[in-house]
C-alpha cells in the first residue's frame, strides 16, 4: 500500500495535469510563439516586440505602476482582513461559521456585477455623493469613480475573501495558551499581536497576499470600469494593443513580460517567507 502510494498519487493527479497541459500550458506556449513572431501570418522569428516592450519608458512606467497597484491593494486588504481574523480567533464554532459565511457571501456575486455595483456607489450621481449632498456635507459631488483611491477601495472589497480566509485559517491554528501566557506575563495587547499573533499567522497572510497581488494587478474588468481609461494599467494596455489596434504580437510580448514580472514577485515573496519560517523554527 505504502509503496504504491506515490504511483497511485501521481495517477490520480493525471487527469488534472492533462487538463492543465491542454487548457493552460499549450495556450501559454502559443502566446510565447506569437510574441516571438514578426506578424500573425506565418512565423518569422523576431525579438522586436520584446525590445519594444522593454525599452519603451512609457510602457515600463505602466508595468511598474501596475505592480505598485497590486502591492497597494494587497497591503490595504491585509489591513482590512486582520481585524476580521482577530474576531474570528475569539469566536466559538458558531461565530466562526457565521464569519466565514459573511466573507464568502460577496463571492456568490460575479466580479463584473460587483464592479458595476461599485460604479453605482462611487459615481458622480452615486449613492455616496447623493447621500452626502442631501445631508448638506458637500455641495459639489466628490470625484471617486475613475480615481485610484476609488479603484483601490473596490479591489480591496473584491479580493478580501482571498486574504481573509487564509489569515483566519492560520490564526485559528495558534495555540491559545501562547496568547494567554504572553498576556499573563504582562504584555500589552498590541505587544501580543506584534510578537505572537502576527508572526504565527504570517504563512496565511503571505498566502493571502500572493493571491490578492496576482488577482488585483491583473483585474482587467475592475481596473478599467472603476479606474477608467485615464489610469492605464497593463491589462488595459494589452487589451488596447490586441483588440483595439490588432497588434497581437506586441500584445503577446507585453503579456509575457507582465506575467513574468508578477511571477518574479510571487517567487521572491515565497522564498522570503520560507526562509523566514525556517528561521522561526530554529
Amino acid at each position: 500500500m505504502r509503496a504504491g502510494g506515490a504511483v497511485s498519487g501521481y495517477l490520480s493527479a493525471a487527469p488534472l495535469a492533462l487538463l492543465f497541459t491542454v487548457a493552460y500550458l499549450v495556450p501559454v506556449v502559443i502566446l510565447v510563439i506569437i510574441s516571438l513572431s514578426a506578424s500573425t501570418s506565418g512565423f518569422n522569428f523576431t525579438l522586436v516586440h520584446y525590445v519594444a516592450a522593454l525599452t519603451n519608458g512609457f510602457n515600463l512606467g505602466i508595468l511598474f505602476d501596475t505592480l505598485v497597484l497590486g502591492l497597494q491593494v494587497s497591503f490595504a486588504t491585509m489591513l482590512a482582513a486582520y481585524p476580521i481574523g482577530l474576531l474570528f480567533m475569539r469566536c466559538g464554532p458558531r461565530g466562526r461559521a457565521i464569519i466565514v459565511f459573511l466573507i464568502l457571501l460577496p463571492m456568490l456575486t460575479n466580479t463584473v456585477v460587483r464592479t458595476f455595483a461599485w460604479m453605482i456607489i462611487l459615481g458622480r450621481e452615486g449613492v455616496i455623493n447623493i447621500s452626502l449632498m442631501s445631508i448638506g456635507w458637500i455641495e459639489e459631488p466628490l470625484r471617486m469613480l475613475y480615481t485610484r483611491t476609488g479603484l483601490i477601495v473596490a479591489l480591496v472589497q473584491i479580493f478580501l475573501p482571498l486574504m481573509a480566509l487564509p489569515i483566519n485559517a492560520s490564526l485559528a491554528r495558534i495555540n491559545d495558551n501562547l496568547v494567554k501566557a504572553a498576556e499573563g506575563l504582562g504584555a500589552s495587547r498590541f505587544y501580543v499581536f506584534r510578537t505572537v499573533i502576527l508572526p504565527l499567522s504570517l504563512p496565511g497572510a503571505i498566502a493571502g497576499f500572493l493571491l490578492t497581488f496576482a488577482g488585483s494587478s491583473t483585474a482587467f474588468v475592475s481596473q478599467t470600469l472603476v479606474g477608467g481609461g485615464r489610469q492605464i494599467f497593463m491589462p488595459l494596455l494589452i487589451y488596447q494593443q490586441a483588440i483595439g489596434v490588432q497588434k497581437w504580437n506586441a500584445a503577446a510580448a507585453l503579456s509575457i513580460v507582465f506575467a513574468i514580472s508578477i511571477l518574479v514577485i510571487v517567487f521572491a515573496m515565497n522564498r522570503y517567507s520560507r526562509k523566514y519560517l525556517r528561521g522561526m523554527d530554529a
Binding site: 469613480l145 475613475y146 478599467t224 477608467g228 481609461g229 485615464r230 488595459l236
Partner: peptide, 10 residues
C-alpha cells in the same frame, strides 16, 4: 473632461 472611460460601452 469629467471622465475618460476605457471603451465606448463604458
Amino acid at each position: 473632461v469629467g471622465a475618460i472611460p476605457p471603451n465606448p460601452g463604458a
